[in-house]
Nucleic acid binder design. Structure first.
Lengths: 192, 192
DNA sequence: TCCATAAATTGACCGTGGTCACTTTCATAG
DNA sequence: CTATGAAAGTGACCACGGTCAATTTATGGA
């Protein structure tokens, strides 16, 4: 039997309810009980649509990041580290709005633990593809595979965001830290 | 009033009970209720000793990693990427024994969210110090600060471990992936 | 030795994510 | 139109981390 319209409607109601709650209380404060109450369905229904609360978070947060990537994909390949950072900063802002959000992203960044690949993991793949294309067509080091360079950018991104939440967060901004990382990674000068 | 002997004993009982449970059921399966039952104390006592279950995990896992660092600190500075990997692999094994363990490490790697710096976060600082010393005294690139190089090694380490848990885990071992990263990061050849 | 005070411990209780046997609704065949 | 089986939905229930007012135990001064 095919998927029923009812199913899609219920799912949409759940997602909308969640988004509304998040809009005025943030991600961390989201409660499944509130979502089902607002959506007008039973608790069990929620878990028929999402494996667990985390799966809803993955869907919602992944969706937001995909929207950033939609923007980013329209851009011309950047010609400097600075232009790369201009492109990335908006999504950094989103990812660091709440520590909880960053934790969800971290947990899902290494792709799906089981079977299906989640929305957030997909964004990392997409990010890698775009970045590799950019790096291959920009004035950056040529001694290594662009895919590897992109991989590294991803690693440094996680690092810079994680350090942002440090108490030993010695006043260095995410952008400045990323700039240091990317200059060393994409434009090495091992002459002396 | 000074801290009582009773306190130290209770804390030791809790930790020992936890370690025993973990020894034969792993970290993920640990339940606070089991720990307090084995230790012969009430549930509330546990939370008088540890802020939450995560704090116990931080203590236990951080302790294990510190033990690895004790070994590592006795070594001579490595003379190649391969020797660096020899030194790091044992702790990689520990960190990837359970996905749960890696998640705890990830969550605490960016140092303490509040006030006090935790055991795991401390290991990252220690790791950075040792690695910076090594890199400064080995045959690696000289165009950037050793501390920055060490920072990067940390970032790539997280990345390599995270990818290990991918479903799209295309058969590349952690060591091989790390080797690729470190060669590109520590020994760039941007000639051509 | 006894009292006052602080420290340590207790366990009933709560919040919240997640389960599952059961009911309701839908789609299709006859 | 009705019977039938599958899909969707229900809500009482459970597991487990975490709280807190009340109680017990230690300590140091009189």
């Amino acid at each position: 039997m095919a998927v029923q319209t009812r199913t899609l409607k219920t799912r949409a109601k759940l997602i909308e309810a969640a988004q509304n709650r998040i809009k005025d209380a943030g991600y961390e404060a989201l409660r499944v009980e509130d979502v089902v109450k607002d959506a007008g369905v039973a608790k069990g229904t929620f878990f028929a649509h999402f494996k667990d609360k985390d799966a809803l978070m993955d869907h919602l947060i992944g969706g937001e990041i995909h929207a950033f990537l939609d923007e980013v994909e329209l851009m011309e390949p950047p010609k400097s580290v600075d232009e790369i950072l201009d492109a990335l900063m908006p999504s950094f802002e989103f990812m660091t709005q709440e520590r909880f959000v960053f934790d969800v992203i971290l947990r899902h960044s290494g792709a799906a633990q089981n079977s299906e690949i989640g929305a957030i993991a997909q964004t990392f793949i997409r990010h890698g593809t775009v970045m590799a294309h950019w790096l291959a067509h920009g004035p950056f080091r040529k001694d290594i595979d662009p895919a590897l360079m992109a991989d590294g950018v991803g690693a440094f991104q996680i690092q810079a965001l994680a350090l942002h939440f440090c108490t030993a967060h010695n006043g260095i901004s995410i952008r400045d830290r990323m700039e240091t990382y990317l200059n060393a990674w994409l434009l090495p000068k091992p002459s002396g």
